[in-house]
Amino acid sequence: MNTDLFESLRLELRRGSLILAVLAELRTEQYGYTLRKTLADHGMAIEEGTLYPLLRRLESQGLLVSRWLEEDKRTKRFYRLSPEGKLILKQLVAEWKRINSSLDEIL
């Protein structure tokens, strides 16, 4: 019971930070699979079923742009930050730092 509760609270805590991590990683253009691997290498593992719908949502909100490119004889969808995404990321990073320092004081 406690494990379930912890897991649900942990996921809730992670949800917002994942968006920040995805936006930050997409300062350089990459496709879904490599993005997932990079995030996992940095300790922010994310399931395919969560990442791809999130990428779609961020794109529909105008924060990302995407295009199909051929690489190793296969077509892959590459994502990167849009100009608006860059601006929002900057604001989110500032907000993240503010929350972080507040939490540091509280904790």
């Binding site: 879904g32 699979y33 997932r36 791809y52 296969r74 892959k76 969808r77």
Partner: peptide
Amino acid sequence: QKEDVVAELSEDFRS
């Protein structure tokens, strides 16, 4: 979204 999403999922799966 059908074609687009399936192509992307297929690509991830093959990778």
